[in-house]
């Protein structure tokens, strides 16, 4: 077992974990933050995307112990049901989901895109930047619309 301490959604957590515990497993099974999903488990689908020290990463392909001292933000850390993050609100308004399984990862990736590329995102940029997030329901059209709208809404915030 190995001890790991990190900040998750603003709160410091310390735990003893088997070193092979993935960050996704740690978040879901130790902290019960089940908003982070595991879809493919082979780092292709992006349902597990969270932010580590402000950068999007795939939590199914990162060891929890490698996040010692890091600041982790999950979908639970960006908004509440009463006060959705502008990107969450944009997904709801634009019907950017059907089953919703990919949505946490989509939203965490979308916020990362805005952080890197700004608030005015064209369709091509959004589609390129969402390469690492797979949706098997919608065909992406409304997701792209949601990301563009959410990016602008984040500027207004």
């Amino acid at each position: 077992m190995a001890s790991v301490t990190m900040i998750v959604n603003g709160k410091e957590v310390t735990a003893n974990v088997d070193p092979r515990t993935l960050l996704a497993q740690f978040l879901r099974e130790h902290l019960h933050l089940t908003g982070t999903h595991v879809g493919c488990d082979t780092s292709q689908c992006g349902a597990c995307v969270v932010h580590v020290d402000g950068r999007s990463i795939k939590s199914c392909t990162t060891l929890a112990v490698a996040c010692e001292g890091a600041s982790v933000t999950t979908i639970e850390g960006i908004g509440t049901p009463e006060h959705l993050h502008p990107m969450q609100a944009a997904f709801r308004e634009n019907h950017g989901l059907q089953c919703g399984f990919c949505t946490p990862g989509m939203i965490m990736s979308a916020i990362d895109i805005v952080n890197r590329k700004g608030h005015q995102l064209d369709e091509h940029t959004i589609r390129e930047e969402l390469e690492g997030n797979i949706c098997r329901c919608t065909g992406y059209h409304n997701i792209v619309k949601a990301v563009a709208a959410g990016a602008q809404a984040m500027a207004a915030k």
């Binding site: 780092s43 992006g46 995307v49 950068r55 999007s56 990463i57 795939k58 392909t61 990162t62 990736s109 990362d112 895109i113 890197r116 930047e129 390469e131 690492g132 997030n133």
Partner: peptide, 9 residues
């Protein structure tokens, strides 16, 4: 290389 999240690691 890969996708944005992969490039961050």
């Amino acid at each position: 290389i890969g996708d944005p999240a992969v490039r961050n690691r």
